[in-house]
Amino acid sequence: MWFSRLYGNNTDKPVTIEEFRGIFQELFPELCLYATKFVGDFDTSKDLVHDVFADFWTNSEKLKNKSLVKPYLYKAVKNRALNYNKREKRKSRLDELFDSQNVIVDFSDNNDIISAISYEDLQADLEEAIGKMPEQRQAIFRMSRFQQMKHKEIAEELNISPKTVETQIYRSLIFLRSKLSHYLNDR
């Protein structure tokens, strides 16, 4: 079964479709989260992870002696994301400044895998933290992040000044950062 393959079990058999499907469904979300570290936006991350799976699919025969699918996929996502950044040259100088500060977890051995972010945990923790904020701030944050509304649109919608919107978003971010710090450090 794919589970044993995922967490280390040397077998010579090629990956079957059932195994592949299991791997895909389990790892797709967390690989996307990992990819956003490099490329920032979700849609690009999703495409990159998709490509990695496609490659893995065509080359999985090569992988039959590699016992660990997960580190392999993490590494592949990282390489692809870095290549993407190089190729696209889409990073601004500020992006580069921030990136240079980041320690990237390499997932080169099994232990690091445990530190991968589960999106279910992230969603639950984020939702809990948002719920602790004052109501208007919650609403503004949700509009800004989940509905991708610009400051001006939020201000118009709620009939408040854009300055207030900015202040509220900034306060949300400071608050959420304190609550979710374990997702943000060294990752």
């Binding site: 979300p29 996307c32 989260l33 956003t36 570290k37 920032g40 936006d41 979700f42 991350s45 400044l97 921030f98 500060q101 980041n102 972010i117 999106y119 992230l122 969603q123 984020l126 992040r145 989940f146 991708q148 971010l173 400071i174 959420l176 950062r177 979710l180 710090s181 997702y183 943000l184 450090n185 990752r187």
Partner: peptide, 21 residues
């Protein structure tokens, strides 16, 4: 402020991504 801004930047992209998965 580099660390603070950097972490907020990460939070920003995680919050966006998390809602979509």
């Amino acid at each position: 402020y580099v660390k603070e801004f950097n972490e907020i930047r990460r939070l920003w992209s995680l919050a966006n991504t998390s809602g979509k998965i």
